[in-house]
Write a protein that binds this DNA or RNA. Structure first.
Length: 195
DNA sequence: TATACGATCACCT
DNA sequence: GGTGATCGTATAC
């Protein structure tokens, strides 16, 4: 039901980021659905954004960001973690939304196994944690979320504008401007928002 | 070929 | 509050 179409992603990254809150991220493993409500995201917008992986131009690693909207950009970092992004805007313009946290909905048993018995609150309350819980790794880099495969996003619940909080992005070590813009969005009061 | 470091996490005090 | 883990990637030599 209600899978997001490519037109949803082919818009301003800040708009897509805000509207992804309350949507449902789904992966299908061996016929089993793993899913969660998106409760926290961050926007990374173009080569002019010092914190964006595309800030120093096109490389093999960030290739997916330059591709068509509605695809996954998955990268490996700190020697052990994966993070999931959704590519936005027109093909050729490098931008994406980092999925930072989910409220787990389906496949809790499997997620607990992937997260070695961590309490439910800590299953998906961080960008690398949710990838571990849903078994998302670099094999998912470049996957088309609109093609109806193993990874996609569905309609979730209605979110009121007043529910949405904004803040600077977490963990980036870039220029002052990059660190000060409020391009992180989250559902205020949700138990699964990180930190 | 060599080196420095990162859109994090878990565990420590 | 702080720090170690651990390695792919970009950049320099």
């Amino acid at each position: 039901m209600g899978r997001l179409r490519r037109d949803f992603y082919r818009r301003s990254t800040l708009t897509v980021a805000r509207e992804l809150l309350g949507k449902r991220l789904v992966s299908v493993m061996g016929g089993q659905r793993l899913s969660g409500l998106i409760v926290e995201v961050e926007a990374y917008i173009g080569e002019g954004d010092a914190a964006c992986h595309a800030a120093r131009g096109r490389t093999p690693r960030n290739e997916a960001m330059y591709g068509p909207p509605g695809h996954a950009y998955v990268y490996f970092i700190y020697g052990m973690h994966h993070c999931l992004n959704v590519v936005t805007e027109e093909e050729g313009f490098p931008a994406a939304v980092l999925i930072r946290a989910l409220e787990p909905l389906e496949g809790l048993e499997i997620m607990r196994r992937h997260r070695s018995g961590k309490p439910d609150r800590e299953l998906t309350n961080g960008p690398a944690k949710l990838c571990q819980a849903m078994a998302i790794d670099r094999g998912f880099n470049g996957v088309d979320l609109c093609a109806g495969g193993v990874l996609f996003i569905e309609e979730g619940r209605i979110v009121a504008q007043e529910e949405i909080g904004a803040s600077p992005r977490i963990g980036i070590k870039a220029s002052e401007v990059a660190r000060s813009v409020a391009w992180r969005f989250y559902l205020q009061g949700n138990d699964f928002v990180s930190r």
